[in-house]
């Protein structure tokens, strides 16, 4: 549904986005990650046709956003960053206006407004003017505007920004549900959100894509991924550590804490963590160590994120 080919944007000498390409199909929720100023919003603004790209192309459902902007814009809903809305209008007036601009009229428009109001829990403030609303309500009003025409493509720039934890949860559930039938791109700073909602994630840094994969794939890139954490009921650190290091397939062993004794065993190169886990549990049985915990690390997204987007090696080491 969404195809982005080699999008570039420069503001004078400053390169905001340099050569971003990806595709999003129906049924996919793409998480767009990156530090502040990485080019997330600029990329989204180019895809939605708000700012023209310096080079490259974005197509929505086959329509190029630069050549056939009206057709492309019809297919998508967009929640801009900071969720702007006309302060002097009521929620109902604003949503009716959005529906009318989307070409809905009469009873179809009323139905669309009612549906969006229900989905975004806006019944209580329907006839209040937008400027009197709290940030959460304003945000949901603008979100309601983006889904009013039940678009096939949804582009959301930080949809959970400024919401309380309950509202965040609602919005995430909503995005996941809508993601079954739509192509969705959403940007966020919150990494747990990506794990909870996305089928795929892209990390963008200084205008280029530095990682692209499912959340699980990305987590596997973490230094911790595949390491095995062992927690024992008793024993002293030194001999246990040396026994673990001597195991076949074990690499570095890191001491995490003394009381209770917990260690992290990294698999050696080209050996699987599964074999290592088996070897560790066999060793524990053989030595009659009390095994309190044994688990394989999945890796952590925040660590991957920091490892990729922090340029200096010191920070990289700290993350590892």
């Amino acid at each position: 549904m969404i195809q982005v080919r080699n999008l570039k944007k420069t503001f004078g000498p400053k390169v905001a986005v340099s050569g971003v390409s990806f595709t999003v199909e129906k049924g996919e929720v793409l998480g767009f990650l990156g530090p502040n100023g990485a080019g997330k919003s600029t990329t989204m603004r180019m895809i939605t046709g708000f700012i023209p790209p310096t080079d490259g192309e974005a197509t929505i459902g086959g329509y190029s956003i630069t050549e056939h902007p009206i057709e492309a814009k019809r297919l998508m809903g967009y929640l801009p960053e900071n969720a702007p809305s006309y302060a002097d209008m009521t929620v109902h007036g604003f949503l009716s206006f959005a529906a009318e601009l989307r070409g809905l009229s009469g009873s179809a428009r009323q139905k669309a407004v009612a549906r969006a109001v229900e989905t975004c829990f806006l019944e209580n403030v329907l006839h209040q003017s937008v400027e009197t609303l709290s940030k959460g309500y304003r945000h949901r009003t603008c979100f309601a505007q983006s889904i009013i025409h039940d678009p096939e493509v949804l582009i959301l720039d930080e949809p959970t920004d400024g919401l309380d934890p309950n509202q965040k949860h609602e919005v995430r559930t909503l995005i996941r549900k809508m993601g079954e039938k739509k192509a969705i791109i959403f940007s966020t700073h919150i990494l747990e959100e990506v794990e909870a909602v996305c089928s795929r994630a892209i990390i963008i840094d200084r205008g280029t894509i530095v990682a692209n994969g499912t959340p699980a794939e990305l987590k596997r890139r973490s230094a911790q991924a595949g390491a095995i954490t062992v927690r024992l009921g008793e024993g002293s650190s030194k001999p246990v550590q040396s026994r673990l290091e001597a195991l076949k397939g074990a690499g570095r062993v890191q001491l995490l804490g003394e009381q209770p004794l917990s260690l992290r065993v990294f698999p050696a190169k080209q050996s699987s963590s599964e074999d290592l886990a088996k070897a560790i549990s066999a060793l524990c049985a053989q030595e009659r160590w009390q095994l309190l915990e044994l688990h394989t690390e999945e890796g952590r997204l925040d660590e991957v994120f920091r490892g990729i987007t922090l340029p200096d090696t010191k920070a990289n080491k700290a993350a590892a």
Partner: peptide, 14 residues
């Protein structure tokens, strides 16, 4: 100032 320009120009209007 309100940022609604972004909203307006990403609607299907010229």
């Amino acid at each position: 100032r309100l940022g609604t320009l972004e909203l307006l120009l990403t609607m299907p209007v010229t």
